[in-house]
Amino acid sequence: MQSNQAAGKSIAKEPTGRIEIDFERCKACELCVFACPKGCIEIGAKINRQGYAAAFFARPEDCTGCAICAETCPDVCIEVWR
């Protein structure tokens, strides 16, 4: 569950997109975690003001900006750039 440990391992491939997860709005339903085809999102350890352990962008280096996470998120917490 720890974040950027994978960063070092990630090989030469450059990310083609980037997401931003609204920490306070996330309800930790994990739908984005399962939806992301590259496994870039994880549930974190930090608890937000709603009391949820919000999801976070764990592996930015693998993001393609496909926006599937954002389409899936019922709480509209995710913005995507490509």
């Binding site: 980037r18 926006a67 509209v76 913005e79 995507v80 750039w81």
Partner: peptide, 17 residues
């Protein structure tokens, strides 16, 4: 200019939401 060098916003909250 976008996020981390990515200029094109491909998903954001719909205006009517």
């Amino acid at each position: 200019k976008g996020k981390g060098g990515f200029g094109k916003n491909v998903y954001r909250r719909p205006e009517s939401l």
